Amino acid sequence: MGRVARRLRQHGGAPGQAHPSPRPADEERPVRPSAVRRPARRVGGDRERPAVAQGVVQHAGGCRIHVGRGTPVYITAHARFTRDLAADGAARGEGDDGVAAAMAAYMEELWARCEDADLSVIAPLDEGRMAALIRNGYDPDHAIWDTDLPQAHAFPRNVDVRDGAFVATRAAGSTQSWFHATAAVVSWPTTPVGPDSLSPLLIGMPDVIRTVAITQALEPNDKAVERMLAEDTNNQAELHRDRQRGKNVDPRDLIAASATGSRGMALASSGAAGCAVVGYITISTRSAAELEKVKRTTSSRARNAHLRIEWLDLEHARAFATTLPFAGGLK
């Protein structure tokens, strides 16, 4: 199915929703945007077909899951429009109806896997719910259960990108802007961590409006080894450049470079498929001054979670989309 993203939002969730604590797998260095934030809605015991984004390149379906109490969790499935998807869609129907039926089948399989992982599926996101969720991403004042808004109002009316330290957005019918900043996870834990490793970010900032998105894609062994070689080449080149400049080498960079090589050896010896993983964090505040304070808090919490993050200054307008329910951010 391509890419599956977890979206966790601290603000605007319905009571009784919570997050799981995702455990990072093999990592991929996030792509800077210039170089490159729902299972069945139960109606009379039946399930509606999930909404499918209409486009010539990619399709997505989303679902909401229940894992306890706290923040809501969303899972998005992303599939590129390939020959295989087109053939599967053609076998199920004509045009977009066939593709929608194929995506619905993929989502059913995804929901079954969620249930196997003890994640209770609540409802798929139809067009109204998806529009409300997207709007809540840049306008937290809008409740995610308020689905009575036109599709045209799902996206910002005004976007201000003049300041490279943040992006300001204003929704239709609103007179106030929200300020957002996005950070990429550039280094995952290099040692085994527990299932609550991300708790400092997920539940350690109760007064901060933020979205944590983790996007992953399975890939064949050959491609995974090729990606590892590219990462290892970049790591070694950076270390060599630092030595030539007389700069002290960060021990964490040495550990990360060693972990990349070890992962490559494990992939090559086992022949198993690889998994590319990227993570992004978006925070939202009412003012630029408050945003700077929250950025420092978020960086501190990320260190407590054994993550290294990098704020994507000058690129926040593009990076912001990586935490919307589009399962983006991978090459």
Results as ranks from 00 to 15, higher is better:
M1Y: 09
V4N: 05
V4A: 12
R6N: 09
L8W: 05
R9N: 13
G12C: 07
G13W: 06
S21H: 12
A25D: 05
D26Q: 06
R32S: 11
P33W: 14
S34C: 02
V36K: 02
R37G: 09
R38L: 10
A40C: 05
R41W: 04
G44R: 08
G45W: 07
P50V: 03
P50A: 07
A51P: 01
Q54R: 13
G62I: 01
T71N: 15
V73E: 15
Y74I: 05
Y74S: 11
T76D: 15
A77E: 15
R83M: 03
A90E: 14
A91N: 11
A91G: 15
D96R: 00
V99L: 14
A104F: 03
E108Q: 10
E108R: 03
L110M: 07
L110V: 14
R113C: 08
S120T: 14
V121Q: 05
I122G: 10
I122M: 11
A123F: 01
P124A: 12
E127N: 02
E127W: 01
A132V: 04
L133Q: 13
R135N: 05
N136H: 14
D146T: 02
T147R: 13
P150H: 08
Q151V: 12
A152M: 06
P156S: 09
R157Q: 11
D160W: 01
V167R: 01
T169G: 00
A172K: 04
A172T: 11
T175Q: 09
W178D: 05
T182E: 06
T182N: 05
A184E: 05
A184S: 14
V186W: 03
P192V: 03
D196N: 10
I203V: 07
I209W: 05
R210T: 00
R210K: 11
T215I: 11
D222G: 08
V225S: 06
M228Q: 09
L229S: 09
A230C: 02
T233D: 13
E238C: 02
E238K: 05
R245I: 00
R252Q: 15
D253G: 06
G261Q: 15
G264Q: 01
A266S: 12
L267N: 05
G271A: 08
A272I: 03
I281C: 07
T285N: 04
S287C: 04
E290P: 00
T298Q: 05
R301F: 00
A302N: 06
A305G: 08
H306M: 04
R308E: 15
I309C: 10
E310C: 06
L312I: 00
H316T: 00
F320C: 00
T323F: 04
L324G: 09
G328A: 14
G329H: 09
